[in-house]
Design a protein around this nucleic acid. Structure first.
Lengths: 192, 192
DNA sequence: CATAGTAGAGAACGTTCGTTCTCATTGCAA
DNA sequence: TTGCAATGAGAACGAACGTTCTCTACTATG
């Protein structure tokens, strides 16, 4: 087993466990068993639990970014590409393993105690905002649209997680349609 | 010191500490010191930490409900009352102690491990949705408006918490205006 | 004044967790 | 075959935490 394979396995397993039970509820021993590696290998790859947590956050960031972008790229018009964000959310919410945004959750759990985690969550959300801003710009929308849509997306995530249903994705999508159309028509006839 | 005063003090102190540091990061000893009561009194009032957590959630629910309703009632028209939700958020986000919605945070921290906490968070959010639905109904809006506005409010909370700024309140409020106006005009000329 | 009951401070206990250490085993090279 | 390096399983350790227990000091009543 390759070294990077071990790292990958540890991170993937930790991601699943942390998502399912929360970070603090999963001990190193449970992670060790689930990943099928020895404690020695675990601490050979990572110096501490917190470094595993940071690796998991990076892993999540990459999954989210790639998955979202793949869905967005399947859409044709700029307007559809903005709405594709919510289609991506809808697919995510329907998964059994969905338990809310991992960054919101890790921020809630450790943000007050770990500046690293708080900062990483902030950066992740910032990069999402920039991504949406780029899509909105390509659609020719005014600058205020992007924050509105990201707030919708964030709200859909927490609502779906706590309610335990995926309804929020469709509701947010419909709201996004209204906001997008209003923003685009405000460009052609600005009066606010 | 009255018995109910002791309970109140414990719950209020726990609320502050749990909000500032996270629930799991605050031990019974720290709570004891901060509240200025003996461990014996603590365990005389509450059988366990988890019962304190539940009492804190109830306390938060009451604070939120009363604070929101007070702000809403200061507004005149039904439309203004819907928008007052976001004024309430704006005031909250500006407080130094703001660290995100306590229910989202407790759900993220303990929801996977404690069914009680998960269920209470769900009920709290549900009651907020019903409150918004009532306001929307009084404004004569179609049923789909309320979920859209609650999603905006949820998103504003997590965005403000993680970004560390209060910008999201104003952005969500502007989005809400657009959604409200679109929903109200859809009533008079339904074509969707 | 004497004494019984109460309350506070904090020691103690059992458990859990992150991290390190030990030791037996295995695979390989000379 | 013999010796060595690496590996895995899990014991061990120190700290933290929730909870209970002990002991001391004070209060109030006879």
């Amino acid at each position: 087993m390759n070294i990077s394979e071990v790292r990958e396995r540890i991170v993937a397993t930790a991601d699943e466990l942390y998502n399912a039970k929360g970070i603090q509820a999963v001990g190193m021993d449970e992670l060790r068993s689930a990943a099928g590696v020895s404690l020695k290998k675990l601490y050979g790859e990572f110096p501490s639990k917190s470094s595993i947590v940071m690796a998991v956050l990076e892993h999540r960031h990459q999954s989210w970014t790639e998955g979202l972008d793949a869905t967005v790229r399947q859409s044709g018009t700029p307007r559809e590409r903005l709405l594709a964000i919510f289609d991506y959310l809808a697919g995510w919410f329907c998964q059994d393993s969905f338990r809310g945004c991992g960054f919101i959750n890790s921020f809630a759990e450790l943000g007050a105690v770990s500046p690293e985690v708080a900062e990483y969550a902030r950066k992740h959300k910032e990069s999402f905002q920039e991504y949406v801003a780029r899509l909105a710009m390509e659609a020719g929308a005014p600058a205020y649209l992007a924050p509105q849509l990201t707030i919708l997306a964030e709200g859909a995530q927490t609502t779906a997680a706590i309610a335990g249903t995926s309804d929020a994705a469709g509701q947010a999508r419909q709201a996004a349609e209204v906001l997008i159309d209003a923003a685009l028509s405000a460009i052609s006839s600005p009066q606010a």
